[in-house]
């Protein structure tokens, strides 16, 4: 879901009150990141603890995921997918992951 930036070209375009006209989804905070979380789907048990503790709403539950799974039993569960547009790279997901399947890799410039 991409949103467009709101532009005011002349003073008359401004609303009469300081009201919100859109969401912060236009603000790609992924640019702040210096470490990138990468999930190893061969190890991930899909417990969704990373999804639970993400402060930036950047771990998304993907139902009916085609991602690799360590066993057939859990393949039907939703898989965590990281939204790199907004992930700030705080590393909470990697720290809290009980099987340590998320690695924080340095971002290359």
């Amino acid at each position: 879901m991409k949103e467009k930036k709101i532009k005011f070209n002349k003073i008359g375009d401004l609303p009469y009150l300081t009201v919100s006209l859109g969401t912060t989804r236009v603000n790609l905070t992924g640019q702040w990141r210096s470490f990138r979380p990468v999930i190893d789907y061969q190890k991930c048990t899909r417990c969704m603890i990373c999804w639970k503790f993400c402060p930036d709403v950047s771990v998304i539950k993907e139902p009916n995921s085609k991602k690799a799974a360590p066993s057939e039993k859990i393949a039907h569960l939703p898989a965590p997918v990281i939204n790199y547009d907004f992930c700030k790279g705080c590393g909470i997901c990697a720290e809290e992951c009980p099987v340590k399947c998320i690695e924080m890799k340095p971002e290359k410039k």
Binding site: T24, L28, T29, P55, V57, F86, K88
Partner: peptide
């Protein structure tokens, strides 16, 4: 309900 793209510091407890 909370949208991503908010400007909290990385690892912010208040945003979570």
């Amino acid at each position: 309900i909370l949208n991503p793209g908010h400007v909290a510091c990385p690892g912010c407890g208040a945003a979570l």
